[in-house]
């Protein structure tokens, strides 16, 4: 039973990690490529870490929960790097497929920038 659960988690994690990188290699413009690694990889590594936690808790030495720390850390940092990468791409005016927002995307890129410059300091 536990063995099956572990096998399922490991396989699901590896498949999602693979799909994330596949998206990185396969999709056609930078902004769509960004979606693969940030999402698929998060769940992929997340389920691998849960598998590791279950495995080492089962091994003895009591409960092994420090894997949660890496999962938590990845869940906090992956969106931040994705946001920064998207901002850098907009700043560099990378070619983009599909419909845009109402304004031209690159025009305000040189304006005051909140994430790096806070007005109240």
């Amino acid at each position: 039973m536990l063995d099956t659960l572990l096998a399922f988690l490991v396989l699901a994690g590896a498949i999602f990690t693979f799909i994330g990188s596949l998206g990185l290699a396969r999709l056609r413009d930078f902004y769509t490529r960004l979606h693969g690694p940030t999402k698929a990889t998060t769940l992929g590594v997340g389920s691998l870490l849960i598998a590791s936690s279950v495995y080492f808790s089962h091994q003895g030495d009591g409960l092994s929960l420090h894997e949660i720390l890496v999962t938590l850390f990845l869940f906090i940092t992956a969106p931040v790097s994705a946001h920064l990468l998207a901002k850098a791409a907009l700043h560099l005016n990378l070619p983009r497929l599909g419909k845009g927002a109402d304004q031209e995307a690159g025009t305000s890129a040189t304006g005051p920038d909140i994430a790096t410059e806070r007005p109240d300091r």
């Binding site: 994330g20 930078f30 690694p37 590594v45 790097s81 990468l85 560099l92 990378l94």
Partner: peptide, 14 residues
Amino acid sequence: SAPDRILALDTLYI
């Protein structure tokens, strides 16, 4: 482009 390469590095570390 450069962001593509950074994204690839990011994926590599994950």
